[in-house]
């Protein structure tokens, strides 16, 4: 296990502090003292389907180490592991891989009091206590700074192939596929990522009426919208939508809907419990 004492000392217990990894997701907060989490892979355990690493480890370093064992981890391929978990956005493979929040089995983080705190446990199946790991994923460093993590891995499929077809009706294609990894749609074309046995992949593509293609389209970066998946069919403008998920990469900016007022109160109560002075990533 990584020695987190120096990281905890750096975070300390007083004064505003922010954290940065590789700066790919917006970087640290300007004008605030900045720390970084430890980096490095502690162990890859393919027969346990886990990897243990410092939160500051680049995602691609972890993916390269896993690939030598024929495994992968469902985390977007930019920046650090800690940054990806703190932001909590899954990538376009979410339909098949499941959300990034399901990847984090155990985390040790540094709390606002400067203490090392453990959440979760090292096994995939674990209901020992409340699920603090899921609360940490997507919390943007406001509840604690991730120090080291244990992540769930998956085998790399023997065959992986993108397909596409022109269509204004993506659900006809979606309904014919068995557990596709990704189904993207821009209003005129559907792109499908299929994985598994080569013959199954070819059979599925034929059933759905899609043709092999080079890869997915470029994803617009104006906004990443999260909408009910049933609303995808009604989208307008320049977009690429994740069918069956409801994540939409849109060219235009977007204001998310106002969250439930009582849920906002709960979030404030949690923040108050975990960081009553608001010193961790202030104003995030």
């Amino acid at each position: 296990m990584t020695d987190l004492a120096p990281f905890a000392d750096a975070v300390g217990s007083d004064g505003a502090v922010t954290i940065t990894g590789l700066g790919t997701r917006g970087g640290p907060i300007a004008g605030v003292r900045c720390v970084s989490a430890p980096s490095g892979i502690d162990s890859v355990q393919p027969d346990e389907m886990i990897v243990c690493c410092g939160a500051g480890t680049p995602v691609n370093e972890v993916k390269a180490a896993l690939a030598t064992h024929g495994q992968r981890v469902a985390i977007p391929s930019t920046g650090t592991i800690g940054g990806a978990l703190a932001v909590g956005h899954s990538d376009f493979r979410r339909l098949g891989d499941g959300p990034i929040r399901d990847v984090l089995l155990q985390a040790r983080y540094v709390s606002a009091a400067g203490e090392v705190v453990k959440a979760g446990g090292p096994t995939v199946k674990n209901v020992s206590g409340f699920d603090l790991c899921r609360l940490l994923v997507g919390s943007r460093g406001t509840l604690g700074f991730l120090g080291d993590v244990i992540l769930r891995t998956r085998p790399i499929a023997p065959h992986s192939q993108w397909f596409s077809a022109p269509t204004t009706e993506p659900y006809a294609c979606f309904a014919r596929l068995y557990r596709p990894i990704s189904v993207l749609w821009d209003g005129a074309t559907v792109w499908v990522l299929l994985e598994g046995h080569k013959t199954d992949v070819a059979d599925q593509a034929a059933t759905a009426g899609v043709q092999p293609c080079a890869g997915p389209p470029a994803l617009p970066t104006g906004s990443r919208r999260v909408i009910p998946p049933a609303d995808v069919a009604r989208l307008t403008g320049s977009f690429v939508a994740e069918v069956g998920v409801g994540v939409v990469h849109h060219a235009d900016a977007w204001t998310p809907p106002t969250p439930d007022a009582r849920a906002v109160e709960l979030e404030r109560a949690l923040k108050n419990e975990f960081d009553s002075t608001g010193r961790l990533n202030p104003a995030v």
């Binding site: 909590g88 956005h89 899954s90 979410r94 959300p99 929040r101 899921r134 609360l135 994923v137 997507g138 919390s139 509840l143 999260v226 909408i227 009910p228 998946p229 049933a230 994740e242 998920v245 409801g246 994540v247 998310p256 969250p259 849920a263 906002v264 709960l266 979030e267 949690l270």
Partner: peptide
């Protein structure tokens, strides 16, 4: 029904 709503994963 949204996959990843904004805010903490309550």
């Amino acid at each position: 029904t949204e996959a990843e709503p904004f805010g903490l994963d309550l």
